[in-house]
Amino acid sequence: MAESDFDKIDAVLHEFEGRKGSLIPILQKTQAQLGFLSKEAMKYISEKTKIPVSEIYGVTTFYTQFRMHPIGKNIIRICHGTACHVADAPEISEALYEELKVEPGGTTKDMKFTVEEVACLGCCSLAPVIMVNDKAYGRLTPSKIKDILAQY
């Protein structure tokens, strides 16, 4: 980890100083700053907060939001909620994996895209839905995937 990364974590820790039960927000903010939670980052947070590193690791692995590997420049979330499943979401994911040549949860070789499957993005009436970073795309068909990816 670079020196500046430690500074970023320090800033996050400072924000939550003295507030009880703030481990999850600390991890969320750290991940937002660094992209993922490395072993080094978890160890450092443990040293500073006096929370055992085993407990931090336990929390990190329990919640799906936390990642322990670097991610691509763009995150694609494919909805696999009920409404999207009924609207043939599996075909959308297949088209996407085929196009990007990745496995579910994987990152493309050029580090441009990371693909995650999630349960419901809350736009079920537009099923099937994917979200690239913060932008949602609805009413998809496998043939629309190429055009969407080309925008990034």
Binding site: G81, C84, H85, C120, C124
Partner: peptide, 11 residues
């Protein structure tokens, strides 16, 4: 927390 995948009332 609206966990039911396929529901968006609370949202």
């Amino acid at each position: 927390d609206e966990g039911d995948p396929g529901a968006f009332m609370d949202r």
